[in-house]
Each structure stands twice: as structure tokens, then as C-alpha cells.
Design a protein around this nucleic acid. Structure first.
Lengths: 329, 329
DNA sequence: CTGAAAGCGCTTACAG
DNA sequence: CTGAAAGCGCTTACAG
């Protein structure tokens, strides 16, 4: 791998001149000289070393993403949106999975700082411990969060409450009265907001909130399956279910099927997110669409604006949309 | 952000000494001096700059992954395996999606070289053009490929042929005679191998290969749906279907359902890969399990060994396993 | 238009 | 045990 000195030597110029033609600098370079340099670059297949450049310029054109788990389709979709946008703007992306472990969140933030990432997008998991907060603060002006967090960073958020309310309204409109909820885990603001939306819809319709109809899962299909079995074996037995994400809804439907319940007749089920395979289920899953890809795009755009130092949105709120399909009636 | 000189100043030592304590070097450092340095590091919250270190040491502890699309659960699972292993060994990961575009493959390889990635794992997509090959060669001794490629790199492969043969044997054992195939796209070695396995099984059982029973999809559920409709409207109409991946199988099942066909009675369907949600379908999807996560782990281990300069496996072959569930009978 | 030189933040062979 | 100095590969203000 040749470096800038090799090129300078071969073209019989200084490294300053090579740098100027490589970077298409404003500084004038004689066309003939430029040609010599270009020829040398081609011959040597020279590429500038990004580490050296980054060290000097304090800009690496690299950003970090911190998420719970890339094998979760929800985050995979967001990441794809981020990456396409990053790529279009010349940024490369480092990816880190935390499994929502505080210790790993902290470790990755430090790592990203060591590697001089220009910025960080943080999604999923909770920023609550003092250390996490204080580290993140050092990256101030370089962080965008996705979701509702108790920190003062530019954020891309989703109207989870509104979406959940709308979903329950839909169920009520269908004549369902015993509406259960498989909520997300304690501590997740997304889970809390969706649960609040569920409660609000009940309240708006003068229906009592019954804790016996509510369980908290872990977002996984397994948890949806297990909790639906509990709920459907309980008294009162719900005739409709709002699940806080599609994965749990898929698990719940399996549980209902095993108990001989027909979907949507005996049990109507609504999911949340609209993961790609939802429409391929039997019956196709009614769900609250969250535009994951667009959220990723928006987060990256926000970060780019932020790093650019100019104006930037401090908050971008995405609305959700109820997609009525076969699993409710 | 403080640097090594700040620490040296505060601790009243040279930067050489700071470097020695930071790196826990073998070079002796007086315990009292060490304490002073450690205290200064703590006070300043000093972290070494990885760019400077990488530039000097020619080792960045960063690797690159090049895949078609992270929102495809198949690759998401592989990536998770790679990342967990990389993380355990202190490597960070840069991720790039190519959508199988040759131009992007080339671009990312160059980019990874510029950023001085220590190594690259390449999966999905095709390395065939001259330019791609010649660039990759520069990274020789630093690349591991996943899948069968016409290049001489250490590789992690899957017994796709064997898996497909086994799946078709299963179908034949069930008494099915008109076995169709929704294969993967032209040019993908994975697609070719799975198709070959299908043909082999037919041949072994003295059954003729009938091109009217075969279509080529794009791996997407949509393509599976569309091609299944074609196949099921054709003559002869297949009574069983081998789909080259689960996504297409899911699409095919939807098509069959819409045509009023019962699964598995009227049409038995086998997928490939065993993506996480397959067992939640109705009926649960019979499929050929590919251990994606373990493949990622193996690829990263191989790369670590390769970079370590010692011995390393040149080829690791993973066997597949038929998972018989409800979609075949 | 061109180049010598300083400096980004590190590590390590060398001298003491 | 400690430190001065060279050097990794770049960019850019400065002088000419």
C-alpha cells in the first residue's frame, strides 16, 4: 500500500501538491502538474489513509449506532434507513449491540469516543445511570436519540401513545369489550407509552382498566406466546388483545390457535410496528405501522445537520398508522 | 478531550511513561510513578486516541462486514454472530449493505482499505468482476468469505446441496411426486447449490427434472408469492414445493391459501434457512435449518486466526438439518 | 503555482 | 526506571 510520499516521489512533486490534487483543493495547481500526479496515483493505486486524515482533521466520516439487537427486525429496519442515508452523505457506520445491558452501553460509548466517531445514534435501551449520562454529555452536539429518553438530545420519536389509542379504539369500534394487553417490558419508554395509549382509550370510552387483563412481555415471540396462554386461561378471558409489538402478537396468535380459538372471531389481535412478514401471516396481522426505515433516515439526517453545525430540528415526531388486516373483526 | 500530553503534564512525567502505564507495557514503571499517572488519567478521564494508535501500529481493531442487506433476517443473524465474536476479541465492526450491486461492493472494499480495517468478512453477492477481484487480492490474508465463491479465500460454507436433497427426499418419502421448486436468483452460488440438490434428489429417485415446475425468485416473500401463483396455475400443478429460502416459502404459502389450497394436504411446502418466525406460522414451516448465527461466529473466529498470523482453517463446512414441522405431510 | 515545515496523538528503540 | 526523539500519513498556513 503506497502512501502520499510514494506518489510525490513518482510524480516529482511535493506531498503538499499531491494532497491538493487528491482533495481537489481550491489552491491552484498547474494542469500539467495535476496530470503527472493523477498518473502517479493511478499507477500506484494510491488511496489516502483515512486514519491520518482523521487524526489531523478531527473528522472521521464515521458514526456509531448503538442498538439492543440487530437480529430484531425492528432495529434492522431502522439501521438500514440510517445506513442508506449515512452512505449517501459519505459516512461509514459502526454498529454495536447492547442487549439493553447498561455496562455495554457505557463500553460502546467510550469505544466510539476512542475511535473518534463523528457522532452517535442511540436507539432502544435506557439511559438512566449517572455514568452513562455523563459520558454521553461529552459527546454533546454529536448524539441523536431515537425514542423518548430523559435526556436533552435531539430526538426522533414515535407517537406510540396515539397509535395504541387508535388500535384500541378500533377494537372497541368492533364491539370488543374485554380487551387485554401484552405490554412491553418495564422501563422501556416505548412500552410505557403504548400502555398509556391503551389505558387512555379505555378511559375515553368509560371502560375500566383491569390489571388482570394486562401482562408485560420482553418483546419476543416466546413471551407473547407464554403471556397469551396465561391471559386466555384467566378470568375474565379477553376477546381482543393489543400486543405492544408484532413479535409478541405473532406469539399470541400461536397460543390462541393452540387453544382452539379462532382469529379474529374468538380473539382479535392487534400488533405494533408492522414488521415485513406481518402481512404474510394467516390471518394477516392488523397492526400499528411504525415507519422504521424513515425513522432511521430522519435520525441520520438530524445527525448530519447537527454535525454540520447549522440549524437542525431538535425533535422529529413520527405519526403511526393503523393497518387493518385480517386478525381483527 | 484530553490527550497523552495533558496526562503527562499533570502527572509530571513524559508521554512515554504515560503510554507505558496505559498499555500495561512490559517495560518497568516505578509503582509510585504509575500511581501518579493513573490518578491523572482518572482526573482527566483520559482515553487514548485510537486513530493515532492505529496509524502507528498499523492495527485498528476494526473489521468490516459486507453483506447485501441487513434488513434480511438471514444476514442479520450472521452479523449478530460475527459481532458477538468480534466484540469478545476486542474488535469493532463496520457494516456495509451492497444490495448485491457490484459497484457498491467495490466502493466498500476501497473504503475499508482507506479506513485501515484489519480484515473483512464478505457474504452474499458475487465476486466476479475483474476489478473486485484485484482489489480484494490486496486485502489477501485479511478476508474471509461466507458461502461458495470462485476465489481463493478462507471460507465458511453451508452444505446447501445436501440440505436441498434431504428436503426433497422428505417430500418424496411423503409420497409427493410433482415437486416444484422456487429457486433463488441466477448467479447466486447458494441458489445454484440448492437447485442442484433438488435435481440430485429427483435423479436419485429416478424422477425426471421438469423445468415447468421450476421458477427463479429474488429471495423476497413477494417473489415467492408471485411465482407460486404461476406454478399453481400451471400444468402440471405441483403438490409439493421446495423454496430456496423461508421468505419465499412464506410468500408461496400465502399464494396457495388464496387459491383455496390446503397446506400441507393439497400442497406441502419446505423452506430453507429457519428464520426465527418460521415456527410461528400456521402451519409451522418445515424448513432446512442453516445455523446462521454459528456461521457468523465461525467466520469471525477464522478471521481472528487469520489476522493472528498463526494456523487457521482454510474451510469450514456447516451441515444443515431438516426440521419437519406442519407445512409438509 | 510550489514546497518546507509544523503538527494531529500516539509507540518504541535508544540512550542514560 | 525515565525521557527525548523519530516516525506513522496526512493537511495547511506560510514563504517564495
Amino acid at each position: 500500500m503506497s502512501n502520499i510520499s510514494d506518489v510525490a516521489l513518482k510524480a516529482n512533486v511535493s506531498i503538499a501538491t499531491v494532497s491538493r490534487v487528491v482533495n481537489e483543493s481550491d489552491h491552484k495547481v498547474n494542469p500539467a502538474t495535476r496530470e503527472k500526479v493523477l498518473a502517479a496515483i493511478r499507477e500506484l493505486d494510491y488511496r489516502p489513509n483515512a486514519l491520518a486524515k482523521g487524526l489531523l482533521m478531527k473528522k472521521t466520516m464515521t458514526i456509531g449506532i448503538i442498538i439492543p439487537d440487530i437480529s430484531n427486525p425492528y432495529y434492522a429496519e431502522i439501521v438500514r434507513g440510517i445506513q442508506d442515508t449515512a452512505d449517501g452523505a459519505g459516512y461509514a457506520v459502526m454498529l454495536h449491540n447492547t442487549d439493553r445491558k447498561q455496562e455495554r452501553i457505557i463500553r460502546y460509548i467510550y469505544l466510539l469516543r476512542e475511535k473518534s466517531a463523528d457522532g452517535v445514534i442511540f436507539s432502544g435501551g435506557i439511559i438512566n445511570e449517572y455514568e452513562t449520562l455523563s459520558i454521553l454529555k461529552e459527546l454533546k452536539e454529536r448524539v441523536v436519540v431515537v425514542g423518548r429518553h430523559a435526556v436533552d438530545f435531539p430526538a426522533v420519536m414515535v407517537d406510540n401513545m396515539g397509535g395504541a389509542t387508535q388500535a384500541v379504539q378500533h377494537l372497541i369500534g368492533l364491539g370488543r369489550r374485554l380487551i387485554g394487553c401484552i405490554a412491553g417490558p418495564e422501563g422501556s419508554t416505548t412500552a410505557e407509552d403504548r400502555l398509556t395509549g391503551y389505558r387512555n382509550a379505555l378511559a375515553q370510552n368509560g371502560m375500566a382498566f383491569d390489571p388482570r387483563l394486562v401482562r408485560r412481555g420482553t418483546w419476543s415471540p416466546e413471551s407473547g406466546y407464554r403471556l397469551a396462554r396465561e391471559l386466555l386461561a384467566g378470568d375474565p378471558r379477553p376477546t381482543a388483545l393489543l400486543c405492544a409489538n408484532d413479535q409478541m402478537a405473532i406469539g399470541a396468535i400461536k397460543a390462541a390457535r393452540e387453544l382452539g380459538l379462532r382469529i379474529p372471531g374468538d380473539l382479535s389481535v392487534v400488533g405494533f410496528d408492522n414488521v415485513p412478514t406481518g402481512s404474510y401471516f394467516d390471518p394477516p396481522l392488523t397492526t400499528v405501522e411504525v415507519p422504521m426505515y424513515d425513522i432511521g433516515v430522519a435520525a441520520m439526517r438530524m445527525l448530519i445537520d447537527l454535525l454540520g453545525g447549522g440549524m437542525f430540528e431538535k425533535l422529529r415526531l413520527f405519526n403511526t398508522k393503523l393497518l387493518v388486516r385480517g386478525s381483527t373483526a
